[in-house]
Design a binder for these strands. Structure first.
Length: 433
RNA sequence: UCCACGGUAGCUCAACGGCAGAGCGUCCGGCUGUUAACCGGAGGGCUGCAGGUUCGAAUCCUGCCCGUGGAGCCA
C-alpha cells in the first residue's frame, strides 16, 4: 500500500471528489451486511464512512475489514464519492486497508454511559465527537482571547505556580513543600501581575489556578485555568469597558467562525446573540432585585449561587454587578471615593445560570491605605513587603480582572458541567486519569 | 463540613421479603446500502463492604466505603 499517496484528512474530502485518497485514523463503528461492510473512520477532523464490497476487493482486504474492532487504528485508501446515503455526504469506496493496531475490546460502547464511568475513562471519552468539539472550541476561545489582548498591546507575562503565601488569604490552598519550607499552589497570579504591569504597562497571565475547597458542583473545578489581565493607569470604568469588549469579541468570533461546533454540541445560538453594552447594576440595586425575588439577603452579605442566578435571569446578556461592600471582597480593592464602604469591584455574571465568569477590580494604589487593609484583614505583613513596594516606587492607579476559562467555555458551549470543558478535570476526590 | 439521592453482568438499568433478569457491548451464525443497522444463538454475577432482623435479604435495620447533585467558597 502506498500509504502516503494523496494523504488527506476527513474534513478535506469534499475537495477530493473523484480522487483516490489515503486516510489515517481510527475505526469509530462498523456495520456489515453479508458481502458489504460500512466502516466509520474518524481522524480527529471528522468521521467518514468507508464502503467495502466483497466483490471489489481482494480476499485479504475483505478479511481485514471484516475483523477490525472498534477504535482499531487504520490506514485506508479508496475513491472519494459524493453520496447522500453516507453520513457527512461523502464516502470512501475502499480499495485497501492496513491495520496499524487491532484494538482490544473497547470499554466505551456507542451508547449512554454514567458520569463515573466516563470520568474513569476520560482518556478514551475524549475521542467521542462531542468531546472533540468541546476541545476544539476551547482551543479557539483561548486563541481569540489572547489575540484580543495582544492586538491591544498586552504581553503575556507568566506568574509562578509555587508561592510562599496565600495571595488573598481566603480560600483553602494546596500545601506542598519547598526544600523544607511550606509552599502553596497558586490560586491567582494577580499580585505578581500587578508587579509586571508596572514593568510592561499592559500584561496578562494565563495559568492554572488551584483551590483546595471541597466543592462538588457543576460550577467548580479543583484545578482550573484563569486568564488575568492587569493594566497600569486603568480605572474601574476602563476595566469594565475592556472586559465587555473582550467577551463580545470572543462570542462574535465563535458565532461567525465556529457555528458548526455549536451545532455539533446542540447549543442554541439565540442566547448568545446579543449586543453591547452589557447592563451595569450596583450591588445595592442587585440587593433590591433579590428582595423583589423573595430571596433573603442583607446588605453586606456576598451573593451565593442562587442569588447570582436570580440576578442574571433578569437580563438577556451578561450583567456587571459593581461596587460591593468592602467587607465581602478582597483586601486590595480600591474604595469608591464617593462611598468608602464599597469598593470599585465588579463581577460579570453570565446568563442562563452559568454564574460569575469574571471578577475584577481597581487596586489600591496608596501605600498607607494598602498597609491598613493588610492589617485589617489580619494578613502577614512581612509576606507583602514586595507588594507594598509597588506602592512606594511610582505607584499608579491600576486595574485588572480574572476570567475563568472553563466557565466561559461552558457557557458558550452550553455545557451542563465544567468537567467537560477541560481535558482532564480535577474534581473533588478525583485525580485520575 | 453539612443536606439529598444512589451503588445489581463490561456498560445502562429492572426486580423492592420468596428461582437475579432485560437491552447494549463481546463471541458464533445469517444478510449487498447500513445510519447507535437488523435477525438467531452463546457466554457473562461475592447484588459496594461488614454486621443484624427473618424460615428466607439485592430488597428491611445499623455502621463504614465509594459516587452523583447541591450548600458554603469562589472563576
Amino acid at each position: 500500500m502506498t500509504e502516503r499517496e494523496n494523504l488527506v484528512t476527513v474534513d478535506e474530502m469534499p475537495q477530493h471528489e473523484g480522487q483516490e485518497v489515503t486516510i489515517r485514523g481510527w475505526l469509530y463503528n462498523s456495520r456489515s451486511g453479508g458481502s458489504i461492510a460500512f466502516l466509520l473512520i474518524r481522524d480527529g477532523t471528522g468521521i467518514v464512512q468507508a464502503v467495502v464490497a466483497e466483490d471489489d476487493v481482494s480476499a485479504e482486504v475483505w478479511e481485514t475489514a471484516q475483523n477490525l474492532t472498534q477504535e482499531s487504528s487504520v490506514i485506508v485508501a479508496g475513491l472519494v464519492n459524493e453520496d447522500p446515503r453516507s453520513p457527512g455526504g461523502y464516502e470512501l469506496h475502499l480499495r485497501d486497508v492496513q491495520t496499524v493496531q487491532l484494538a482490544e475490546e473497547y470499554p466505551l460502547a456507542l451508547k449512554e454511559h454514567g458520569v463515573d464511568f466516563l470520568l474513569d475513562n476520560r482518556h478514551l471519552w475524549l475521542r467521542t465527537p462531542r468531546q472533540v468539539a468541546i476541545l476544539r472550541l476551547r482551543d479557539f476561545i483561548m486563541a481569540r482571547l489572547e489575540e484580543f489582548l495582544r492586538d491591544r498591546g498586552f504581553s503575556r507575562v507568566d506568574t509562578p505556580i509555587l508561592t510562599p503565601n496565600a495571595c488573598e488569604g481566603t480560600t483553602t490552598l494546596f500545601e506542598t513543600e519547598y526544600f523544607g519550607d511550606p509552599a502553596y499552589l497558586t490560586q491567582s497570579g494577580q499580585l505578581y501581575s500587578e508587579a509586571t504591569c508596572a514593568a510592561l504597562g499592559k500584561v496578562y497571565c494565563f495559568s492554572p489556578a488551584f483551590r483546595a475547597e471541597k466543592s462538588s458542583t457543576r460550577r467548580h473545578l479543583i484545578e482550573f485555568w484563569m486568564l488575568e489581565p492587569e493594566m497600569a493607569f486603568f480605572t474601574h470604568e476602563d476595566n469594565l469597558d475592556l472586559q465587555e469588549k473582550m467577551i463580545d469579541y470572543v462570542i462574535t468570533q465563535v458565532l461567525q467562525k465556529k457555528g458548526e461546533l455549536l451545532e455539533e454540541l446542540d447549543r442554541d445560538k439565540d442566547p448568545l446573540t446579543f449586543e453591547r453594552p452589557y447592563p451595569r447594576i450596583t450591588y445595592d440595586e442587585a440587593v433590591d432585585i433579590l428582595h423583589e425575588e423573595g430571596l433573603s439577603i442583607q446588605w453586606g452579605d456576598d451573593f451565593g449561587a442562587p442569588h447570582e442566578t436570580a440576578i442574571a435571569e433578569r437580563f438577556d446578556r451578561p450583567v456587571f454587578v459593581e461596587r460591593f461592600p468592602a467587607e465581602c471582597k478582597a483586601f486590595y480593592m480600591e474604595p469608591d471615593p464617593q462611598r468608602p464602604e464599597v469598593v470599585l469591584a465588579a463581577d460579570l455574571l453570565a446568563p442562563e445560570g452559568y454564574g460569575e465568569i469574571i471578577g475584577g477590580s481597581q487596586r489600591i494604589d496608596d501605600y498607607d491605605l494598602l498597609l491598613e487593609k493588610i492589617r485589617e484583614f489580619g494578613l502577614p505583613e512581612e509576606e507583602f513587603d514586595w507588594y507594598l513596594d509597588l506602592r512606594r516606587y511610582g505607584s499608579v492607579p491600576h486595574s485588572g480582572f480574572g476570567l475563568g476559562i472553563e466557565r466561559l467555555i461552558s457557557w458558550i458551549a452550553g455545557l451542563d458541567h465544567l468537567r467537560e470543558a477541560i481535558p482532564f478535570p480535577r474534581l473533588l476526590n478525583r485525580m485520575r486519569p
